[in-house]
């Protein structure tokens, strides 16, 4: 409460200094941040229940709903596709489109980065790819919300990637072998303590970068769109509307690209890190 209040006072004072009208940025963050209700303006809002489990607040929020929506969409799509493959090996329509993506993940992401034994990680990579892709696109739908623009969610996905990376490395190289292999060959003995620290830190910076990259990319686009549209209300004139809308549309199209690229990059880097953990010798 305090954070938002102080923010409001700051923005209010800034707005008063710049413009005579009262300005509030709550509306902007409202579209980006998680919420306890689903907004369907002007049709009203649905309030989501608060759930507490052993003192933990595990309330279902807007982003949880949209994650579930993504999961349901994926399950429905892949059930159809899977059934289509049982009927005939030749794909058509939806299965054809999905197959392109699956083969892309398999042949362009997993196979070159992991190499031998990539099949074991394929289910995880495919799920991550399609889940992030669907979440990204759900943010571009009216009344939609981008679950992947929430740092908690991207961090969790990154932690899962981290677990996959470490598990893959440990299963393939053995527990001791994996941690020994972290330090590159031919390093002088006196450097070992430093290298060990650097490498261990490196293990954690990788998923951290994954989380921040996904979160920042998906948040930035929405903020820019909202800011461009907000310009109309800040400047209080209709003349800026065509420009704002044109730019917002451009950013929206860019966001479609970003939605695809970020899903690709998250999967690609996860796969790359898994490959590095599994085959440590290069």
């Amino acid at each position: 409460m305090t954070g938002i209040d102080s923010l409001n006072t700051v923005s209010d004072s800034l707005a008063k200094a710049e413009n005579s009208g009262s300005q509030d940025t709550g509306w902007l963050m409202h579209h980006i941040l998680d919420a306890r209700e689903l907004d369907f303006e002007p049709f009203g809002t649905i309030h989501l229940p608060n759930i507490n489990l052993f003192g933990f607040d595990i309330s279902i929020t807007k982003h949880v709903i949209f994650m579930w929506l993504a999961a349901i969409i994926l399950i429905l799509i892949f059930r159809t596709v899977s059934k289509a493959y049982q009927k005939s090996l030749a794909p058509k329509g939806l299965s054809n489109f999905i197959e392109v993506l699956i083969i892309f993940v398999r042949d362009e992401i997993a196979k070159p980065t992991i190499g031998k034994g990539f099949e074991r990680f394929l289910p995880y990579l495919l799920t991550v790819f399609f889940f992030i892709l669907t979440c990204n696109f759900l943010g571009l739908v009216p009344y939609g919300s981008t679950a992947t623009s929430n740092i908690s969610i991207t961090a969790t996905l990154a932690i899962l990637s981290f677990i996959m990376i470490q598990a893959g490395g440990i299963i393939h190289n053995g527990f001791l072998g994996y941690f020994k292999g972290l330090v590159p060959h031919g390093v002088p003995a006196w450097l070992l303590p430093i290298m060990a620290v650097v490498e261990i830190l490196g293990l954690f910076t990788k998923p951290f970068a994954l989380a921040i990259r996904l979160f920042a990319n998906l948040t930035a686009g929405h903020i820019v769109i909202l800011a461009l549209l907000g310009l109309i209300f800040i400047l209080n004139t209709y003349f800026v509307a065509p420009v704002s809308i044109a730019f917002a549309l451009f950013i929206y199209l860019l966001e479609i690209l970003v939605a695809l690229i970020q899903a690709y990059i998250f999967t690609m880097l996860s796969s790359l890190f898994i490959g590095m953990a599994v085959h440590q010798d290069h």
């Binding site: 409460m1 305090t2 954070g3 938002i4 963050m29 409202h30 980006i32 941040l33 998680d34 919420a35 306890r36 933990f56 607040d57 595990i58 309330s59 279902i60 929020t61 982003h63 949880v64 994650m67 579930w68 999961a71 994926l74 399950i75 289910p123 995880y124 799920t127 889940f131 929430n150 740092i151 908690s152 969610i153 961090a155 969790t156 996905l157 899962l160 948040t219």
Partner: peptide
Amino acid sequence: GGEQGGLLDVVPGLIFWTVITFVLLL
């Protein structure tokens, strides 16, 4: 945190739901 939370807030409930959702989906 507040009612709405900050942009960089890490919410345990969301982590919980994300893990559940993702692992089940997987």
